[in-house]
């Protein structure tokens, strides 16, 4: 049975923890709103881009003269996995769920005899992958200093990825991120960006192209990849805040429960001490 003083200290410290988790939850809620707004604002561009790209890609096809970013370079030996995680922890299973998916995919590829390379975005994923996959690391993009993810960040990542693809050191590029479903649910997603895939393609609108279909396609492909990366970054940002919000909400609630339990224990031991003292006084008086 801990002493009264120890219990009191314990209650005090749990109360402080609750204050902190509560504050973190509020901050995450505010950031989540901003992240969602950013994702919302980016949607029109991404949607148009995909629509145009599917129309173009369907028109050009994946023949021999198709751009390599679309058709691939004919090999699928070296896979580059771009693992996007957060820069901070304390957000439930957010980082580990992405890492888990990436690890599963990497193991699967290795089992098929492929070579795996990794580009990590965000510190947390790198830390978790370091133990098993540090030999596969080809680069790291640090977003720790970035307050708001901008299109420029996506372009930086895309440039690295494209450069690796152009010089032939990787054949297939896949990105890993968490797709934002709701505050309590984020879906770890893997998406192949090179060779580019566009679903649909059933767009029947016939366009004139100026200058020509091929030139536009070659011009747009890198942009479209940057857009996909950007969308993933934004989804990831919203997911991280959502995950943190629900993790902190749980923590706050747990702290509340714990305070209640400790308070009951504290009151009981205080009452027991009082009763004991009374008994001592009374029995002392009776003995006289």
């Amino acid at each position: 049975m801990p002493s009264l003083k120890a219990l009191k200290n314990r209650i005090g410290s749990v109360k402080n923890t609750r204050k902190i988790t509560k504050a973190m939850q509020m901050v995450a809620a505010a950031k989540l709103r901003r992240a969602q707004e950013a994702a919302e604002a980016a949607r029109p561009y991404a949607e148009r881009m995909t629509a145009v790209m599917s129309a173009l890609a369907a028109g050009v096809g994946t023949g021999d003269d198709a751009p390599r970013l679309l058709a691939g370079n004919g090999r699928d030996q070296v896979h580059l996995l771009v693992v996007m995680t957060g820069e901070r922890g304390l957000c439930g299973g957010f980082n580990s769920s992405i890492v888990k998916l990436a690890r599963a995919r990497a193991n699967e590829l290795v089992a098929q005899g492929k070579t795996v390379k990794m580009l990590t975005v965000g510190k947390k994923g790198r830390e978790q992958l370091k133990r098993d996959w540090s030999a596969a690391f080809v680069g790291h993009v640090d977003l720790g200093e970035v307050k708001r993810v901008g299109y420029g960040n996506a372009q930086t990542i895309t440039r690295q990825v494209n450069a690796a693809f152009e010089d032939g050191s990787v054949d297939v590029v896949t990105i890993f991120y968490n797709r934002f479903q709701s505050v309590i649910s984020q879906i770890p997603t893997m998406q192949q960006i090179i060779p580019a895939r566009f679903e649909g393609g059933a767009t029947t609108a016939l366009y004139d192209y100026e200058p020509s279909e091929e030139v536009i396609l070659a011009d747009l492909l890198p942009r479209s990849i940057a857009t996909q990366v950007f969308t993933a970054l934004l989804e990831n940002g919203a997911s991280e805040q959502g995950a943190r919000m629900s993790a902190m909400d749980n923590a706050t609630r747990n702290a509340g429960d714990m305070i209640n339990k400790l308070t009951i224990q504290y009151n009981r031991s205080r009452q027991a001490a009082i009763t004991k003292e009374l008994i001592e006084i009374i029995s002392g008086a009776e003995a006289l």
């Binding site: 145009v52 129309a55 173009l56 609108a205 016939l206 366009y207 004139d208 192209y209 100026e210 200058p211 030139v215 536009i216 011009d219 747009l220």
Partner: peptide
């Protein structure tokens, strides 16, 4: 400001994609 020259788009323009 199209790559292949400036152009003006008005209602009823032929569907076009231009850089």
């Amino acid at each position: 400001p199209g790559v292949a020259g400036d152009m003006t788009a008005m209602e009823g323009h032929e569907p076009t994609i231009t850089s």
